[in-house]
């Protein structure tokens, strides 16, 4: 269904309609969805374009300023997004660009009519991310990033570099700030014979594209998802906002949460710029309290979460 979407069809729609389209855009991804890779000539772009293709993603084009006319990872390379979209009909882009170039790449993608953009760069300045977010909103596009390992519908398609060893088709909808912690959760689920319906890494940046509360309706509406798993971190208010959304939407699907950073040091960003605690704001205690009040279950360890997932499928 996503292949039929274009910027022209969604420009000017209401916020509610756009929220509905986010669902269609993300959950409607399939092996048919045409995807381009920005920064395909770089080390990461080259490697992951090939790995995504091997997984089944329909990579149709690459963009690299200095390499138009060449072929990389078996797809044609264009000088800019507009040319790549015009020639191939790509509607999704994975930007494998350095952090300082990610704002320009995102603006070019939205201008070319891309409706779903995944950016993977670690270290995009927060004010650049604000501008990407505003541009995505103006274009009616969905942005996942700034720094994320990407997303996947296991067995179908992956955008980014979620490790194959942790991907397994199933009924758990997984959303995570941390890449590696979600790998560990996904891998243990897979080892227990449990898989994921849809997996979205929102990334650990303070300013980002899709946040937990934005994704919650996507999982609630997705018929493949039976249980929603939130892997959070201290800092920011995303978990709290997701708790409010869960309470308001009255979801009939269980929400399980694991939140890292109980022992985080105040005033210091723990690896992720967003994982910054100051005062009572962003603490694990507050996130846990709000999620539990909304009816979610919060687990103290990875193993406790995985055991609850196993029990939920009985």
């Amino acid at each position: 269904m996503i292949a039929g979407l274009s910027r022209a069809t969604i420009a000017g729609l209401s916020r509610a309609t756009i929220a509905g389209l986010s669902h269609a855009t993300i959950a409607g991804l399939s092996r048919a969805t045409p995807v381009l890779v920005q920064g395909i000539a770089g080390r990461m772009g080259r490697t992951h374009a090939a790995l995504m293709r091997a997984y089944g993603t329909n990579i149709v084009a690459g963009v690299a300023v200095g390499a138009p006319g060449r072929e990389i990872a078996g797809v044609p390379v264009f000088a800019d997004c507009a040319a790549a979209v015009a020639a191939t009909g790509a509607v999704v882009s994975v930007a494998m660009t350095p952090p300082a170039e990610t704002l320009a790449a995102a603006l070019a993608a939205f201008a070319a009519g891309i409706v779903l953009l995944v950016t993977v760069a670690e270290g995009v300045p927060a004010q650049d991310a604000l501008r990407i977010g505003l541009a995505a909103r103006a274009a009616g596009a969905v942005w996942i990033g700034a720094s994320t390992p990407g997303m996947a519908i296991p067995g179908q398609v992956k955008l980014g570099f979620l490790p194959d060893v942790a991907l397994r088709p199933g009924s758990f909808g997984l959303m995570s700030k941390s890449g590696t912690l979600s790998y560990e959760v996904g891998w243990r689920l897979a080892r227990a014979g449990l898989g994921q319906s849809l997996w979205v890494g929102v990334g650990g940046d303070p300013v980002k594209g899709m946040r937990f509360p934005d994704l919650l309706p996507v999982f609630l509406a997705d018929p493949r998802t039976r249980v929603i798993v939130l892997v959070g971190e201290v800092g920011g208010t995303e978990e709290e906002d997701c708790a409010a959304a869960y309470a308001a939407l009255g979801g009939d699907k269980p929400l399980f949460a694991l939140i890292a950073g109980q022992e985080a040091k105040e005033g210091v960003a723990m690896g992720h710029a967003g994982a910054l605690v100051h005062g009572a704001s962003g603490t694990l205690a507050e996130k846990t309290r709000r999620l539990e009040a909304a009816g979610a279950r919060v687990f103290p360890s990875i193993e406790a979460l995985v055991q609850a997932c196993a029990a939920a499928t009985d």
């Binding site: 995570s176 700030k177 941390s178 890449g179 590696t180 912690l181 979600s182 790998y183 560990e184 650990g204 892997v231 971190e233 201290v234 694991l258 890292a260 950073g261 109980q262 022992e263 985080a264 040091k265 723990m270 690896g271 992720h272 994982a275 103290p300 360890s301 990875i302």
Partner: peptide, 24 residues
């Protein structure tokens, strides 16, 4: 360790067991 979230979780789980991790 590698990965911010997994490293934080490891610290939390170690501390909950009464261990004393030095660093993230």
């Amino acid at each position: 360790t590698t990965g911010a979230g997994l490293s934080m979780m490891l610290i939390d789980e170690l501390t909950a067991r009464g261990a004393r991790p030095l660093n993230f």
